[in-house]
């Protein structure tokens, strides 16, 4: 053992964080050793609090410390439009581009038969309940344009047909600042098929 046991233990814990190797973990451990007591105790408290206080919102299944979450409580948002996303991190990305407009529903996964994940293993039944209960008029399906994301989007659109809800899917195509020469044929096809008038 190179360092005293408590430091070795901290290095081991830090090494388990994504993107942190042993060298960086050692540097961080020594930073913490030399930091003020208030900083280290606050850091420890913050880490334990995320496990104690963070849970899922009972409406949209976003991660939150209060239930319902801030987004579900926001009266200014359009109550008739629901944006469907795979993960909480996807909500954050959309929210940063369109702040304060939509309400969300987080599926916590996508349909993936290869992993044995069907519609009942993600939050699709709860989404169906919300459509009826909250009188939703439009669903924006913002799952990834992957095989699994597209399958989930099609399944949701079939499932919600009886509710007379407008279903929209986020567009996929050429990124802003991109060059057509480097775009693959499938993306070009999608961009041309989903072109809009100007």
């Amino acid at each position: 053992m190179l360092y005293p046991e408590p430091i070795e233990r901290l290095i081991d814990h830090l090494t388990r964080l994504p993107g942190i190797g042993r060298k960086t973990a050692t540097r961080l451990a020594f930073f913490l050793l030399n930091a003020k007591d208030t900083y280290t105790s606050d850091l420890g408290k913050s880490i334990s609090e995320i496990k104690e206080r963070i849970r899922l919102c009972s409406r949209c299944f976003n991660i939150t410390d209060i239930d319902p979450c801030h987004i579900c409580r926001d009266e200014k948002r359009d109550k008739t439009v629901l944006c469907i996303v795979e993960e909480p991190s996807h909500l954050m990305v959309i929210e940063s581009a369109h702040p304060g407009i939509y309400r969300y529903h987080i599926l916590h996964g996508v349909i993936n038969p290869l992993e044995g994940i069907g519609p009942d293993e993600i939050r699709i039944p709860e989404m169906k309940e919300r459509i009826v209960r909250e009188g939703i008029k439009e669903l924006i399906i913002a799952t990834n344009p992957t095989m699994e994301g597209n399958t989930t989007a099609h399944y949701i659109s079939e499932l919600t047909k009886p509710f007379e809800v407008k279903i929209t899917r986020i567009a996929s195509g050429i990124p802003i600042g991109g060059d057509i020469v480097y775009i693959d044929p499938l993306t070009i096809k999608s961009a041309i098929d989903n072109r809009r008038s100007m």
């Binding site: 095989m147 399958t151 989007a153 099609h154």
Partner: peptide, 13 residues
């Protein structure tokens, strides 16, 4: 490409 399977869950299964 796999395009065309995603329209039906049975096809994907």
């Amino acid at each position: 490409s796999n395009s065309g399977l995603e329209v039906d869950l049975k096809k994907v299964c």
